[in-house]
Amino acid sequence: MLVVIYIYLLDYSLFCGWQFSDGSLHALMVGDPQLEGHARTQREPYLPDNFSNGYNDYYVRFVVGSLFRRLRPNMVVVLGDILSSQWIGDDEFWWRVERYRWIFQEVISSGVLLVNVTGNHDIGYGGEMEEHMVKRFEEAFGPVNRNYPLAGHTFSNLNSLNLDSSLNEVLQGKSRAHLVSMTELEDPVILLTHLPMHKPPGCCSDSPHIQHNWRGHVEYQNFLSENETKFILENVCPYLIFTGHDHVGCDYLHALPVNSKRKDVFLENGRSVEGVSEHTVRSVMGEYSGNVGLFEIRKKSSGGYEYAFSNCSFVKLQYLSVLFITTLVWICIGLLISIFKLCLRCIKKQKQKIP
């Protein structure tokens, strides 16, 4: 039984695949890695130094690397919260960046487009965001606001964390300007951002909640505000939106506002869609089974495009730990039995030598 389980673990990516073999774009969507650091080591003094961090790094590297090698995507997107805290110092920040680069080494060395969306644990919410946080993020991971033309579409990476309210008006102005520029794009837009759009309560694991500090700036939010969401749906009119943040994952279809400039219907997963399809991608963390989203675009012979999205999960990190410990116990039992049998043989031989 253990052999069968290990065969699955080593080749689990065989159970995931693209729906369009002739797709013009295949992308891996990775949600919320949240690489931790020294604070975790201090919380777990009973474990060897950085054991948990290293264990988690190997886990995410295996998940991303396995899918990347077998599926050969031409785009990889990390949907924010690359790190677990925006308040760390520069030394620890760059240490975590090096670990991130090791985890995504195969992607980086291949030259495949890697888009890093920024999250609240990378640069803070609007009421926390400061210039140096954004600057070091961009030095390590690339621009927080940028368009990527690909496969007849524009993939737009948007820093949505300071749209509702911001401590820094200059940074907010840059995000706002990028958002407004997206309204003038001619190609179909695929929006990439960390914060999910506003939704009614009960549609996803979270309900709408925005918390402001005493200055009136946002210090926590699980969705964009209703007004910002409406602006995006009415004026940007993306075909699809990919977000992170909630860890659990959620698929939701937004109705197009009456004033929306886009009125067409498109195909996703073989179904006609009239609206904007949003996928909040489940986290790649071990607690959430190492999930990665698979997104595809295919150009139809009759004109236009069709899309597909699915999730590919590995196994919870806790279950792996139980499996490894169980395996180690059985190996130890086997060794003890072998040693015991060897000792019995030696004793038997010694008795035979005695006249």
Results as ranks from 00 to 15, higher is better:
335 L>W: 00
313 S>C: 12
5 I>Q: 07
44 E>T: 12
199 K>W: 00
302 S>I: 10
253 L>D: 10
38 H>F: 11
42 Q>R: 14
284 V>L: 10
16 C>H: 12
174 K>Y: 14
346 C>T: 11
17 G>Y: 05
327 T>A: 14
184 E>F: 03
218 V>P: 06
259 N>E: 15
107 V>F: 12
80 G>T: 05
105 Q>F: 09
104 F>E: 04
323 L>K: 06
169 E>T: 14
289 S>V: 03
240 L>Q: 13
126 G>W: 03
169 E>A: 05
177 A>H: 01
239 Y>N: 13
293 G>Y: 07
155 F>E: 02
215 R>T: 00
344 L>D: 02
78 V>Y: 00
291 N>E: 07
61 R>D: 10
13 S>R: 06
291 N>K: 09
228 E>P: 00
77 V>D: 05
78 V>R: 03
105 Q>L: 11
90 D>V: 14
216 G>N: 06
323 L>G: 00
312 C>H: 09
259 N>W: 04
250 C>W: 02
324 F>Q: 13
335 L>K: 04
353 K>M: 15
128 E>F: 08
342 L>S: 14
254 H>D: 10
144 V>W: 05
284 V>W: 03
146 R>C: 13
96 R>H: 02
44 E>P: 00
261 K>P: 06
161 L>Q: 09
149 P>H: 09
247 H>Y: 12
313 S>V: 04
244 G>E: 10
19 Q>R: 14
58 Y>R: 13
104 F>D: 05
27 A>F: 05
265 V>E: 07
120 N>I: 03
302 S>P: 00
60 V>L: 08
111 G>D: 05
148 Y>W: 12
346 C>Y: 07
79 L>K: 02
259 N>V: 04
348 K>P: 00
98 E>K: 07
11 D>N: 15
314 F>C: 09
109 S>K: 15
316 K>T: 14
118 T>Y: 00
273 V>S: 03
352 Q>H: 10
282 R>P: 08
21 S>L: 13
102 W>T: 12
290 G>M: 05
48 P>V: 07
246 D>L: 12
171 L>I: 02
39 A>T: 03
69 R>V: 06
52 S>M: 13
218 V>M: 08
14 L>F: 10
332 C>G: 01
290 G>K: 08
334 G>D: 01
278 E>H: 05
77 V>C: 07
28 L>Q: 02
68 F>Q: 09
303 G>D: 03
19 Q>I: 03
4 V>R: 10
197 M>T: 12
301 S>P: 02
99 R>G: 12
39 A>W: 06
42 Q>D: 11
337 I>M: 05
63 V>Q: 04
6 Y>A: 02
354 I>K: 14
227 N>H: 06
164 D>S: 09
147 N>G: 12
274 E>F: 08
103 I>K: 08
197 M>L: 15
7 I>P: 00
278 E>N: 01
136 R>G: 02
282 R>L: 06
